[in-house]
Amino acid sequence: MQNISNSFFELLNKIQEKKKGDDIQQYFAEVADYLFKHVAIQAGETRFTFAEIEFYYYKEGEFEGPLYNCTYPRTRNVGKFFWHYSGMDICFESSEEKKYFGGILIRSIKRGSEIIAGPMRCSDEIMNSCDGELPYLVYCETACETPVSTIRYGIEADKNQNMKFCFYIEPETWNRKREGVLVADKATGRYKNVSKTDYYIAEPKKR
């Protein structure tokens, strides 16, 4: 198993060089392309690759306003995971004290050919796959195509300013079909096995 290369962290750290007026969307596209094609998450024995991500960043005096103030503050080193109310991020170098922070929200992942869609589902699946240690990033050559960009889910400023900070690959379907799911039967008070389909209402191509 190969550890993640320093080139990925160096790419993430380039955000520190960005100034107001720079094409930050193009920078996010470069990071997304690298992430989809060369990075995976290892959680126990399970490896997850990326299917959909969103970028969030705030820097006082440089990247402020409605596009940026939807970012969760945090103090974390570059490349570390950050868990929050909406899921989990891969962090840019972040400092609440210095008022710059942000990361890459993991919105959808792949486990083999299976799509797990939605940021909270991703966080749950990754953590529940761990076996005695936290998940970590690994180098992984994928056959992934160049990701497509679109607006982030639920961020009105993206529509108003036509900024596309979400990147994804198009799977055959965003719906996950599962067999043998245990659910409570109210009539008997017992659990029973059912088939279930997880529908992804935030499907990026429909935004």
Score class of each variant (00 low, 15 high):
104 I>N: 06
82 F>Q: 03
35 L>A: 11
76 R>L: 03
68 Y>N: 15
92 F>E: 06
16 Q>E: 13
19 K>S: 12
183 V>R: 03
80 K>C: 08
118 G>W: 05
104 I>T: 10
49 T>L: 08
147 P>H: 15
123 S>E: 14
117 A>F: 01
137 L>D: 04
25 Q>T: 10
3 N>E: 08
149 S>A: 15
78 V>Y: 01
69 N>C: 14
86 S>G: 10
105 L>T: 11
155 I>G: 01
172 E>T: 11
133 E>F: 07
187 A>M: 08
194 V>G: 03
141 E>C: 04
169 I>C: 11
44 G>M: 06
107 R>S: 10
38 H>Q: 14
199 Y>S: 03
45 E>F: 04
78 V>G: 00
112 G>N: 04
129 S>W: 13
2 Q>R: 07
66 P>N: 14
125 E>D: 12
112 G>V: 04
74 R>Q: 13
132 G>M: 10
179 E>R: 12
56 Y>I: 05
70 C>W: 11
2 Q>S: 00
61 G>Q: 10
110 K>F: 12
189 G>D: 06
100 Y>K: 06
62 E>T: 07
55 F>V: 07
109 I>R: 02
100 Y>Q: 12
35 L>E: 08
51 A>V: 13
118 G>C: 04
146 T>G: 02
105 L>G: 02
135 P>Y: 07
20 K>P: 00
13 N>P: 01
14 K>Y: 08
194 V>P: 04
35 L>M: 14
135 P>G: 04
17 E>N: 14
147 P>C: 14
54 E>F: 08
72 Y>T: 11
173 T>H: 09
73 P>K: 12
37 K>Y: 01
1 M>G: 00
16 Q>K: 14
25 Q>G: 00
204 P>E: 07
77 N>F: 06
155 I>E: 03
172 E>F: 01
197 T>Q: 11
179 E>G: 02
178 R>I: 13
154 G>E: 13
168 Y>I: 07
134 L>Q: 11
4 I>H: 02
76 R>I: 06
194 V>F: 03
101 F>C: 03
143 A>N: 15
25 Q>W: 05
35 L>V: 12
145 E>F: 06
127 M>L: 15
200 Y>V: 05
180 G>W: 04
100 Y>V: 04
56 Y>L: 07
39 V>T: 12
160 N>M: 09
99 K>F: 01
32 A>Y: 05
153 Y>M: 13
61 G>W: 10
178 R>T: 10
69 N>R: 15
195 S>T: 13
143 A>V: 06
48 F>D: 06
65 G>W: 13
86 S>A: 13
156 E>N: 09
47 R>K: 11
2 Q>M: 05
147 P>F: 15
20 K>H: 12
82 F>M: 09
